[in-house]
């Protein structure tokens, strides 16, 4: 199944790494790890797709093959009709890439200097550049940051700066690897709003990996779940919830005790994990956490606590549980 009309198409794509492990001082063992194990999908122009899965599932490896950073070990892969690894430089003009953990901006220089470099590097005509920059500055709230050296920006400001930098050359595809990681609520909302607008108005195709379920809920109509290098689910987000709702959705109460204790027992919750003095208690998402908190506080030496909403890992984990 090769769909060359699609903007992005993968057909049986594989990536195998040789991993050398030292077993003893002299002997080394060579092992093959299939990071991506035969993935096929197609993304049409203008789609906004979430690409999710647990750590080490092969998400980043796929993105890196789609951007030409890594060479696939097998299968066929096309982005805008280009074979990424073969024509990396030509592909670069057609794609924008944002790595959440890494910046492409010039650390010691004002933000606008990095944009000037992008203009020259991508040979963007000045009028087009001004227009694109103005739009990004306006919508990502960058006006006051343009003259600030990048090293002085906060994480959220820098992320917004990076997203703008990836879009000044009008890419057909925007890849975002964890675009909201570590951002505060306001920055997250700003980034999401901007991406939605970008997709609606300019028809930019967006492929994003994330750990944040809300990113997907608010942005993507289509979700792909990958695990152990294989595509486990490809469809609407609603379907994913259905697939995962074999067990009822659960929230987690994380409690820090004064000292290490045996798993504590509280009615209405069960301990799912213990790590030193910290314990994780799962309870049904529909239930209030308040009675649980007071029960724990009454009986155990409680230092601190927090409540975690169900995230993608949970949804996926239950999806597997429901399948078995």
């Amino acid at each position: 199944m090769v769909d060359d009309d699609a903007l992005i198409s993968l057909d049986g794509v594989e990536k195998v790494f040789d991993v050398r492990r030292r077993v003893s001082l002299m002997r080394r063992e060579k092992r093959q790890v299939r990071a991506v194990d035969g993935i096929s999908f197609a993304v049409a122009r203008g789609e906004m797709v979430g690409y999710i899965g647990p750590n080490g599932a092969g998400k980043s490896t796929t993105i890196k093959m789609l951007t030409g950073i890594l060479n696939p070990s097998g299968g066929r892969l096309r982005v805008a009709g280009i074979d990424p690894a073969r024509e990396r430089v030509r592909l670069a003009h057609r794609i924008g890439v944002v790595f959440g953990q890494r910046t492409t901006l010039w650390w010691d220089l004002p933000l606008k200097d990095s944009y000037g470099l992008m203009r020259r590097m991508y040979r963007v005509p000045r009028a087009r550049f001004e227009e694109n920059l103005e739009r990004c500055v306006d919508r990502l709230d960058l006006a006051e940051l343009l003259d600030v050296p990048v090293r002085q920006l906060s994480l959220g400001q820098r992320m917004r700066g990076d997203i703008a930098a990836a879009l000044l050359h009008d890419p057909d595809v925007l890849y975002l690897d964890e675009p909201t990681i570590g951002l505060d609520v306001v920055s997250k909302a700003k980034v999401r709003g901007f991406l939605r607008q970008l997709n609606e108005e300019r028809g930019t195709t967006v492929l994003l990996t994330t750990h944040d379920l809300q990113d997907i809920e608010q942005l993507c109509e289509r979700v792909m779940v990958i695990d152990h290098g294989r595509l486990m689910y490809d469809g609407a987000l609603g379907g994913l919830h259905a697939a995962g709702s074999a067990g009822e959705s659960e929230r987690t109460l994380v409690v820090d005790l004064e000292r290490e204790l045996a798993p504590i027992s509280v009615p209405g919750a069960r301990v799912v994990k213990v790590e030193g003095p910290r314990q994780w208690l799962a309870f049904p998402a529909g239930q209030s956490a308040a009675p649980l908190v007071s029960a724990v506080a009454a009986e155990y030496p409680l230092v601190d606590l927090s409540v975690r909403e169900p995230d993608i890992e949970d949804v996926i984990a239950r999806m597997y549980a429901g399948r078995d």
């Binding site: 890196k64 951007t67 950073i69 430089v89 030509r90 670069a92 890439v97 910046t103 590097m121 991508y122």
Partner: peptide, 13 residues
């Protein structure tokens, strides 16, 4: 540290 990745997505050899 993986920062070579950011170089590989730019349109310069």
């Amino acid at each position: 540290d993986g920062s070579l990745d950011t170089m590989l997505v730019r349109p310069v050899p």
